[in-house]
Design a protein around this nucleic acid. Structure first.
Lengths: 136, 136
DNA sequence: CAGGATCCCATAGGATACTG
DNA sequence: CAGTATCCTATGGGATCCTG
């Protein structure tokens, strides 16, 4: 680790260009399976996806479960630690919404709607939804 | 650009392992000069620092001024666009503070004290301070 | 379907020396 | 003092193919 600074710690855990996108897919697009992550617009490649899923698991941001039943499909779930990243993701989104101009489209920013109305209650609404799924 | 998603936009602007650390140095350690950035604990090297300063300037997150007077020392200042990143930086810090355990030391987390007492007023207090410096 | 293996290229980044 | 330049290595990452 480069330093004991909290900002640096966070950057070392998820400060690459892919980890937060995977968590976004889980949080806002309800993706849970390998091939669902592959189909995102940003087109992550298989070796990077596999690598990041391992990293996220090691950092305890996601957990793996064998799909209940006979198939060996793996389902990924968010941990509480990952759900706690929601404010980080939303603040990045809000910043971009303010400064990106026409580079981002309203449809792509749909997940900001609730927090733009009211940060606190919007945040809570999304967190509750994620926590419910988490328990399933 | 990989996509028109606001999260992705932010990640492409400052989602590397150094940019936010430089902004942190400016925001919380009042660093403004090249050699001050070099002396940070994370030990950035000269080529990376020069590169990131150019990037941050191109993205309009910092501005350069020749130091008033005869010397050709360059002073870097935060733009409003960079000051708007304060919530992002603080949320990352708060998350790490919660999840890093003993890997981060209280002294390193001093810049979280105000927001931990009260997010809204703490945020405003820091923003005001940065805006004042910005005007100098 | 999940993900490992391989190949190959681009970028990141450390170390050091040099320039205006 | 603020970079540039150079060299070299490590990592990131795209493409493709392979395996249990």
């Amino acid at each position: 680790m480069r330093s004991a600074c909290p900002l640096n710690f966070g950057l070392e855990q998820f400060g690459d260009k892919w980890s937060l996108l995977i968590l976004r897919d889980m949080m806002f697009f309800d993706k849970r399976y390998y091939n669902e992550f592959l189909s995102s617009e940003e087109a992550i490649s298989t070796n990077i996806l596999a690598d990041r899923l391992l990293m996220l698991e090691k950092e305890e941001l996601i957990t793996k479960q064998k799909d209940t039943g006979h198939k060996q499909r793996i389902r990924y779930s968010l941990t509480e630690k990952a759900i706690d990243l929601l404010p980080v993701i939303l603040e990045i989104g809000l910043w971009s919404d303010k400064h990106a101009g026409k580079l981002i489209t309203p449809e792509k920013a749909f997940f900001l709607v609730e927090v733009k109305k009211d940060r606190e209650t919007g945040m809570k609404k999304i967190t509750d939804k994620l926590r419910n799924d988490h328990i399933l």
